[in-house]
Amino acid sequence: MHELSYATSILNALMEAVENQKELGKNPLKVSEINLEVGELTLIQMEQLKFAFEVIAENTICEGMKFNVEYIKPHILCKDCGYEGDAMPKDEIGVYCPKCNSMHLKIKGGKEFNIKNAIIEFDDEE
């Protein structure tokens, strides 16, 4: 289940951000929201990722965090006809060129997994 490794990476990145805020003298109370960019070719099941995150984030500052996801379509360069643009899904394991149906492609997008930002709530009594 690679969703668990993604969930662990997210939690580690968020906890590091929280620690950085503490070092700056701020008092973070909660990480309430995260914004992710997820390429469609990662094949990540978001419900499984959220469940794994809920389990490992229990009793942390990230417990109950809301996930916002922007999906990124596969972007390709066809090595046969030169088409560059969005790819068409062939099945669960591949994509093809919408112009010539080739699968001889260079993948230029769609495998991303990025944390765009997160919302950290702070104690106002600093």
Rank of each mutant, 00 (worst) to 15 (best):
residue 45 Q to N: 15
residue 47 E to K: 05
residue 8 T to A: 14
residue 46 M to I: 15
residue 46 M to V: 14
residue 11 L to E: 03
residue 13 A to F: 06
residue 30 K to L: 13
residue 97 C to E: 01
residue 105 L to H: 01
residue 6 Y to V: 15
residue 78 C to P: 00
residue 71 Y to S: 05
residue 103 M to Q: 13
residue 79 K to H: 10
residue 56 I to Y: 03
residue 99 K to I: 02
residue 65 M to Y: 07
residue 111 K to A: 10
residue 115 I to C: 13
residue 42 T to S: 09
residue 82 G to L: 05
residue 2 H to T: 03
residue 106 K to F: 12
residue 21 Q to V: 00
residue 116 K to C: 05
residue 106 K to L: 10
residue 28 P to G: 12
residue 11 L to T: 02
residue 97 C to V: 02
residue 58 E to Q: 15
residue 120 I to E: 06
residue 4 L to H: 06
residue 15 M to F: 09
residue 7 A to E: 11
residue 40 E to L: 15
residue 1 M to P: 09
residue 126 E to L: 14
residue 99 K to A: 05
residue 113 F to A: 11
residue 101 N to V: 00
residue 118 A to L: 09
residue 101 N to L: 10
residue 20 N to K: 15
residue 117 N to A: 09
residue 32 S to P: 06
residue 65 M to Q: 10
residue 67 F to S: 08
residue 69 V to F: 08
residue 48 Q to R: 08
residue 49 L to S: 03
residue 13 A to C: 10
residue 74 P to I: 09
residue 74 P to N: 10
residue 51 F to L: 11
residue 66 K to V: 15
residue 42 T to P: 06
residue 5 S to N: 02
residue 32 S to G: 04
residue 19 E to S: 11
residue 65 M to I: 15
residue 120 I to W: 05
residue 90 K to L: 08
residue 26 K to P: 01
residue 94 G to I: 08
residue 37 E to M: 03
residue 100 C to K: 00
residue 38 V to C: 07
residue 54 E to G: 14
residue 51 F to C: 06
